[in-house]
Design a protein around this nucleic acid. Structure first.
Lengths: 245, 245
DNA sequence: GTCCAAGAATGATCGATATCAAGAGTTTGG
DNA sequence: CCAAACTCTTGATATCGATCATTCTTGGAC
């Protein structure tokens, strides 16, 4: 199933996640490799694409981290997601022929660009690939719905806990340590993403640290008690949860 | 361009919006008509599909209104959208082979079901149709992003104003009066959708009515001053806005 | 029509979190 | 290695909107 990964000559980074997400067979992978190209290396603050740019590619994060955000008419920024190695970015361009978001590197990063026009054409000849693509786009919808629930219904503590658990879960999917979370974004960016003030994020994290739920080590957050973190994220819904802490 | 609408024998309702959204040419429309079937009439409270149902169709609202919602592990409901005639529902099933949301009628309603398997196949042979489908799914992503910004950054007043403007804008798109808004959902449902308490929704609407911005007439809301409504939705971002009221 | 239940409006209170402010830590570039 | 510029933390205070409680309205059912 994951044979594709083995076939990549030497450079496996970034392609393993691609295989994981697409779950491609060799033949499909070869097709896809044909329409991928390096989008180059970006410094911190470098843009993969900007709002209003014509939409012609989706991107696969090869290394580093990106944040995707939207700026409204008054110059206010809303962060819609953080994307790590292996994530697909750029489907925000699907609805129009222009991107409605910007994607910027949070640290030195790189990505592959996949021509969407060619991808579409490839899908026409390859129903299995089309299916994968729809699934990945569907995952993006599901992710946004999840985030909406978190922002709309969760308390400050729950939001931060949910975000950490999300990254932990992601790490697990990609075979990384689920307790060591790489968080290159600032507190202000976390707050923006979660719909809360930077100060609140800081307070919640300090509180978690005091309760020995996590440990903060620069841009790394180490989860000490994932069960407690789950309990926090799920608290408030049922009072029984609170007793079990 | 919209020739398809004329070709529908007698029954144009629900298909005009289809044409508007897909912007189909005759040939494409005929293809699509072949894979559509009536999903029957639903009473208020009747479900088009439920969370966990296998995903095999997307739906086009023919008449009435639907709400799409998700119930989390603790039985708490989150409403993710209200859908009127001509809207496409069901893409929440894309990521898995099951729906992750439920769709329920808010009043006597009906819908067309479009087999997704057949739609996919049709897209393979018809790149233009594939393009439309991606666009429509992209619109769903864009809509969710918009909602996230509203929930994450807007005040109670701004949220309600934004929701009303959204429906007004939609009406305009579909050739309906942009000042007469049909709102079959309860205050509690509006509140759930917007991430606020039912009482707050009620207060904001009363306030709008007092300021002669809108008039409430049962399940209809009549917008008297759309400019003021826009000003409210956009206020808080710049202080200049407040002075101009 | 009358009754009843569901929905809506409104008032009073309280609390979570934003905001303001100041200081401590950390990174970056010369 | 130092200084400037970010970033983060923590405290004090203010505020918006949730919550609780009550009354008013509406729309079916009989």
């Amino acid at each position: 199933m994951y044979g594709c990964c083995v076939r990549v000559d030497g450079n496996r980074c970034g392609l393993i996640p691609l295989c994981l997400q697409f779950i491609l067979i060799d033949a499909e992978f070869d097709l896809l490799k044909g329409i991928m190209r390096h989008a180059g290396k970006l410094q911190k603050g470098g843009h993969l694409y900007r709002q209003e740019d014509p939409f012609d590619s989706v991107y696969l994060v090869r290394a580093g981290t990106f944040k995707v955000y939207r700026v409204d008419e008054w110059g206010e920024e809303q962060i819609l997601g953080f994307y790590y190695q292996g994530d697909l970015i750029g489907v925000d361009g699907l609805s129009a022929d222009r991107h409605i978001c910007s994607a910027v590197a949070l640290e030195p990063s790189s990505a592959y660009a996949i021509s969407f026009k060619l991808l579409e054409r490839l899908c026409c000849d390859n129903p299995a690939l089309q299916r994968r693509l729809f699934q990945m786009i569907g995952s993006e919808i599901a992710r946004e719905q999840q985030l909406m629930i978190i922002i709309g219904k969760f308390s400050a503590e729950q939001r931060v806990a949910a975000m950490l658990l999300g990254i932990a879960w992601r790490n697990k999917q990609f075979g990384l340590a689920p307790e060591r979370l790489w968080m290159p974004m600032t507190r202000a960016e976390m707050g923006n993403y979660l719909g809360m003030a930077m100060e609140s994020v800081s307070r919640v994290l300090s509180n978690f640290q005091r309760r020995v739920v996590v440990d903060i080590d620069g841009k790394w957050i180490v989860v000490h008690d994932i069960d407690k973190l789950c309990a926090i994220a799920n608290s408030g819904h049922s009072e029984i949860q609170l007793l079990s802490i």
